[in-house]
Design a protein around this nucleic acid. Sequence first.
DNA 1: ATTCCCCACCTTTTT
DNA 2: GGTGGGGAAT
Length: 695
Amino acid sequence: MAAQSLHLEPLNIAQRKAASYGEALPGGGLRAGPLLVIAGAGTGKTGTLAHRVAHLVLSGVDPSRIMLLTFTRRAALEMRRRAVEILRKALDDTLGGKSQAIAQRLIWTGTFHSIGNRLLRHYAPQLGLEPSFTVVDRSDSADLMDQLRTELGLASKEQRFPRKETCLAIYSHRVNTGKALRESLEQQFPWCLQWEQDLTALYRAYVGRKQRFNLLDYDDLLLYWQVLMSEPKLAQHVGSHFDHILVDEYQDTNRLQAQILEGMKPDGAGLTVVGDDAQAIYSFRAAAVENILGFPQRYQPPAEVVTLAQNYRSTQPVLDVSNALMADAPRQHRKHLLAARGAGQMPRYITTDDLESQAEYVALQILQRREAGTALRRQAVLFRTGSHSDLLEVELARRKIPFVKYGGLKFLEAAHVKDLIAVLRWVDNPRNSLAAFRVLQLLPGMGPVNARAVVEALDAGGGSLAALRQHAVPKGSERDFSRLLDLLAALAEPGRAWPGQLRMAREWYQPHLERIFEHFHTRIGDLEQLEQLSQQFASRERFLTEMTLDPPQAVSDLSGKAHQDEDYLVLSTIHSAKGMEWDTVYVLNVVDGSFPSEFAAGKPAMVEEERRLLYVAMTRARNELQLVSPLKFPLTQQAPRGDAHVYGGRSRFITDKVLKCLEQSGYAGSRAAEARLDAAQPIRIDATARLKDMW
DNA sequence: ATTCCCCACCTTTTT
DNA sequence: GGTGGGGAAT
């Protein structure tokens, strides 16, 4: 028992209550009713959850019977690392062998989607699924949607039918909210209401086609899991494998995810959810804040609620401005963060002329901080959208400041990367006609019509690649078609090892790449990186699934571990910065149009989410916070090359009350200085004469 | 039927 | 700057 409380000593009272909630069972284990932990920013949420995991294990709970659901894979790894560290100390396990062994058994740790993927492969037979299904990403789903849109004749309507991305967004919203299509349309996509009938037909076809091709999209991973949970006997069977289920970032779960949890633990026994309604920033993904707000009352007796309010991350001035920002929010759980660390520097609000001087200012500040002893990796630049850092990236490169950028990475969206992955996807699942359709059209002389004919032959042959040899293709494509079949056959050989497969595909693809793209050299580089990356995975299936469920987050993920011991700056979208912290944080473009995004204009609920986004950004800072506001900010909605911009659009969130918590200053930038030099030009001096006169 | 070329469009955020 | 759609040439 002594060992059981010692490990909780670093925690404060509320944290300790959360970490140890429940009663020890005589035979080992812990019985606990539903628990909700409201954890404000920087209140040690991750640490508390990690301590709870460690506490469960120390109480005798079998690690393989703990399910830990996180929002990203990065968060899952961090949580597991910290739990192991706590165990290592508690068990006096200096060599770390015992705690590592426990970690090995913490197998059900990951995102909803990745755990869904694993459960579904296991329970596939009960659901009428093939266990070898392929998980497709958003752009593949959209492509499939597009094909069906054309097939159903929806693309050529007199009035323009919604774009494929919109079709998919509506579908996804409807699935994740569990609402009727009509309701989704009315609330989120009112301009598409007239298409309700056609959309229903489209979605019916979409579901059918995915089943025929043996494909699951992101939503299916949750949807099939929820369906699995809707049959009480199966639900009981699955649920009984887990004594404890812990959910991080609960404020960003959606209705479907809540239903899954309900199915897993109907009475809430062993269920712990952690979150902060002030940090809900995923409503665009159908997240429902009601999940966290209504959690206690869902149970009888109501769930235990523990609130963590003591902030260990930031200095008080950083929290003052964050609190001031949230004080203006209507309909919020009032929270007032209090700093354990006490006083510090006042956060700054800097106005710059334009985007160029903003980039210059930030780069200079970063260098200054580094001189003063704050390593680059203790600093971060955060922004609303991936492209907001473009100019800064140029500036950093010019000054040779190394950086890593998280979020907004479109590596897997690039046509050439998708081509190569499609080859492997096709081999991995011969029924995957979506991949086949894409690959076939790479061949010269093979357009949509011929490709479709091949795909239909493939479908008719039950996915047999060998049978395709008999299929007639246009004269000009025969040689290339035959070569493609050779490649597929070679890759599909039973004993074929995974290492080297990507290279084989790459060598096959090279001539096509050179023919299709004008500037293919950078693209070759991308494919080399992809090959590098593929070596980290044990099998083709793992590679393909992981790339879909956990695509590379940053450019550094692509170039391997080269950055491991280097010092580098972090650039990140705010969404990708969730849960992270840095000594110094710069927030770019704190301007109306960016905060809130012009996209949210006119929708009060969305504007409030933008406020929370800025709140998340601010509360990442430990010591120093700088909000940068360029006076001249371009409007993205207009022509991208055009000059439309807003001038002096102070963010509506930076009210006078918020401004009182900020130290204001301006930065003119060197270009402005040059402009002043220009202004001096009208005065002429006869310099040559003067120089002559000197002698 | 395919390809090539021009044009418009686009650009939140992510599993 | 890339991608998808539409229209004309092959």
